[in-house]
Each structure stands twice: as structure tokens, then as C-alpha cells.
């Protein structure tokens, strides 16, 4: 048996509830939560979709650390056969293990995380395909951050997000960095303006919890450093 404590409650508060879940081989933390919901506590709220690490909806705080639960084996994270599950930090709780992701994705919008085709200012699909050589430096810089699944683990792990309510956060800034390196994009200047300053990349202290905990192995801290570097050289009129 695994001894599981699950945070239950809503925006007004809550506490830990205790459940005993049968241990199985190759069991993931999401399997444990699903067992609780199907067999013990039908009204337990949590979120998942793909179960294979693609959709980014099942992230929770597992034994004090934000993780994607569908790809986290219980055997890797249980401490003395115990699990403590809480909703993602730094986001409002809707109920139990489900957080409101709207403030997270609102930051992507504020960081101008939407692609703006250079060839059509109104956002329509350009007539011709852009040719972007896979080996080019900018393409590789964009590729390094493009596999983000939007799970919010970096956001929940970031001290600056906790301390500064306006901070855009690692995921939104990582997204902005991929677009800054996208040679097809036409909103570079506006995007760099949007990610500068106390609420943007300059608030980051490079403590790198985001990079450490990203389940996809992305380096948002490096992306933020790239934004700082690009903005620095822009002061001198240099495009690097």
C-alpha cells in the first residue's frame, strides 16, 4: 500500500486528506490519483488528458516538487512509501488538485507569445512557404525551446513568480525567446518591448529552478538570459 495525502479544498482553503492506494508495478503518480478518484473519492477534482507527457495538463506538486504526474513513477518519488500531492503552486486553486491556468496563459499573451507573420501584417497565412534552414543558429535557438507543453511546472517552481505578481514567468519568456529567434516573425520589436523591465526578463535572478524542473528538458533560464542579452545589445543598436 502507498500512503497518499492529497490536498483537498478550494480557493477559500483546505487541507490534506489521507488515502491508502494499492502499490503496483510501474505505477505513475497519475495512476494513484486516478485510483483514488475511481475507487475511493469520486468527487476528487484533478486534470489530465493524454497520459503520455504531451498535453501538459496533469502537473501537480508531488512531495514538495512540481512534476508531470503521468510520467512520474511512484517508485522514483515516494518517500518511505508515502506521497503528498498538492495543486500547482503560484496559481489559484479551483478545487483539490485542479488549478486555474488562466493567469499562466494570460502571461503568454502579455509576452506576445503569438506568432506574427512578417509577410502579412494582418496575421493571414502568407502566400509562400518560408525556408528556414534547420542548421541555422536562429532555428536551433528556437528549436531549443519549442517543445514546451505548457504544463506550468516551471511557473510553479519559480521564486520570482511567487514574489512578483506581475512577473511574466519562465514559460511565457521561453515562448517569447522562441519567437524572437523565429526569422518568419514580424513582431520582434514589440515582443522585446513586452518582455523587458521589472515584470519581464530583467526580474529573473537566474536561479534556474525552471530549467532544473522542466520535464521536457527545456532551459527557460537560458532563454531569459538570451532575451536579456538581445535587449542589452539593442541599446547600442545592435541586432544579436
Amino acid at each position: 500500500m502507498i500512503e497518499v495525502q492529497v490536498w483537498r479544498g478550494d480557493a477559500s482553503g483546505g487541507g490534506l486528506a489521507r488515502y491508502a492506494v494499492p502499490a503496483r508495478a510501474n505505477q505513475t503518480v497519475l495512476d494513484v490519483v486516478t485510483h483514488i478518484q475511481r475507487e475511493i473519492e469520486p468527487d476528487l477534482a484533478y486534470r489530465f488528458a493524454c497520459r503520455v507527457g504531451m498535453c501538459g495538463s496533469c502537473a501537480m506538486v508531488v512531495n514538495g516538487r512540481a512534476r508531470w504526474t503521468c510520467r512520474t513513477h511512484v517508485s522514483k518519488v515516494a518517500q518511505d512509501g508515502k506521497l503528498e500531492l498538492r495543486p500547482l503552486s503560484n496559481l489559484p486553486v479551483i478545487r483539490d488538485l485542479a488549478t486555474d491556468m488562466a493567469p499562466f496563459f494570460d502571461r503568454w499573451a502579455r509576452a506576445r507569445g503569438q506568432f506574427q507573420p512578417k509577410d502579412s501584417a494582418d496575421g493571414a497565412v502568407p502566400d509562400e512557404f518560408a525556408v528556414v534552414p534547420p542548421a541555422s543558429a536562429k532555428r536551433q535557438a528556437a528549436d531549443a525551446g519549442i517543445e514546451c507543453i505548457g504544463c506550468g511546472v516551471c511557473h510553479a517552481s519559480c521564486d520570482i513568480v511567487a514574489w512578483n505578481p506581475d512577473y511574466l514567468g519562465p514559460a511565457a519568456l521561453n515562448r517569447a525567446w522562441t519567437l524572437v529567434n523565429d526569422v518568419r516573425d514580424g513582431a520582434r520589436r514589440e515582443r522585446l518591448d513586452a518582455v523587458a523591465g521589472d515584470a519581464g526578463c530583467h526580474a529573473c535572478h537566474s536561479t534556474q529552478s525552471c530549467t532544473e524542473r522542466c520535464p521536457k528538458g527545456i532551459d527557460p533560464s537560458g532563454a531569459i538570459a538570451g532575451l536579456k542579452r538581445t535587449l542589452f545589445w539593442r541599446v547600442f543598436g545592435l541586432d544579436r
Binding site: A196, G197, H202, K228, L231, F232, V235
Partner: peptide
Amino acid sequence: MTLWVVQRA
């Protein structure tokens, strides 16, 4: 941004 540049310099 300016503060950050000043801080680095």
C-alpha cells in the same frame, strides 16, 4: 532595462 544595464556595468 536601463537599471539592468547599469547594474551589469
